[in-house]
Simulated assay, not measured.
Amino acid sequence: MRNISDLIEHYLKQILQNSSEGAVEIQRSDLAEKFSCVPSQINYVISTRFTLEKGYYVESKRGGGGYIRIQRVDLPSLEAVQRHIHQTVGEQIDQTAAEGLIYQLEEAEFLTEREARLIRAAVSREVLALKLPLRDEIRAKVLKAVLIALLAR
């Protein structure tokens, strides 16, 4: 059984996928009512699962006529993805940002689910049991090398 956050995320991704514009505008209170939860649960899902690192742009307007607009940011071409990797990773990257990039590449189908799991394992803080900032530097080098090699297929 999936939890309420998973259900809300799945619902939002489904309506995003069906949107011709690649964007959706929702009212927090309407969505909360649909899932019988508090509006803060909607905020939690959006702030943790629809981040820029994961390939989403979120715009929020509070108040009476307020809304939340979620837009998918697609990665267009292999060259653009490689540039994106170099810009995102840089000389060092923390685990959260690395996982966000891996998630984004998996969602855009540049990586398979298996490849994403393997990369996440290889760059995890448990495997790279080093002190900061060395851990983030090694993670960046491993992540770039693996992603560029996989995407050059």
Results as ranks from 00 to 15, higher is better:
Y44D: 03
T96W: 05
I26V: 15
V24S: 02
V58D: 02
E126C: 00
R139Q: 04
L31V: 13
A108F: 06
A108N: 11
L128T: 06
E25H: 02
R114K: 12
A116M: 10
A98C: 06
E137S: 08
Q17W: 04
R83K: 15
Q104H: 15
S60I: 08
A129Q: 08
E115T: 11
K61H: 04
Q71T: 14
Q87S: 11
L130F: 14
A116L: 08
E79V: 07
T88W: 05
E59N: 13
C37I: 13
R114N: 07
R72Q: 12
E53L: 10
L132A: 12
E107H: 11
D30V: 02
G22I: 05
K141E: 14
I15V: 15
A98H: 09
V45R: 05
D94F: 12
Q14Y: 10
A140S: 07
K141L: 06
Q104D: 07
T48F: 04
V24K: 01
K131S: 11
K61M: 06
E126P: 00
G100H: 07
E109P: 00
L16I: 09
L16P: 09
K144L: 08
E115L: 05
P133A: 06
S36Q: 11
L78I: 14
P39W: 01
E91Y: 12
I138E: 06
E115R: 05
S60G: 00
S19M: 07
L101R: 10
L130R: 10
Y67C: 00
R62S: 07
I93K: 12
A32R: 08
R125G: 10
A108D: 13
Y56M: 02
V127I: 14
Q87C: 01
S47M: 02
E53I: 01
A32M: 04
G55I: 04
R69A: 02
Q104V: 00
H84A: 07
L16T: 08
V127R: 13
Q95P: 00
L31S: 05
R28S: 02
G100D: 11
S60V: 12
Y44H: 13
A23G: 01
E126M: 01
T96D: 12
L78A: 12
L52F: 06
G65M: 00
A108P: 01
A80Q: 13
Q71K: 15
P133D: 09
L132H: 10
A98Y: 08
L134M: 09
G55C: 04
E109Q: 14
T51A: 02
V45A: 03
K34Q: 12
A32Q: 05
K141V: 09
S47D: 13
D94W: 08
E109M: 06
S20A: 11
A23Y: 05
L31A: 04
E115N: 05
L132Y: 13
E21W: 00
V142F: 08
E25R: 15
A80C: 02
E21R: 11
Q95F: 07
L75Q: 07
S47W: 00
S60R: 15
A97S: 15
G65T: 01
D94I: 13
E137H: 09
R120V: 00
K34F: 05
Q41A: 11
G63H: 01
L132M: 09
L31G: 01
R117T: 00
K144F: 03
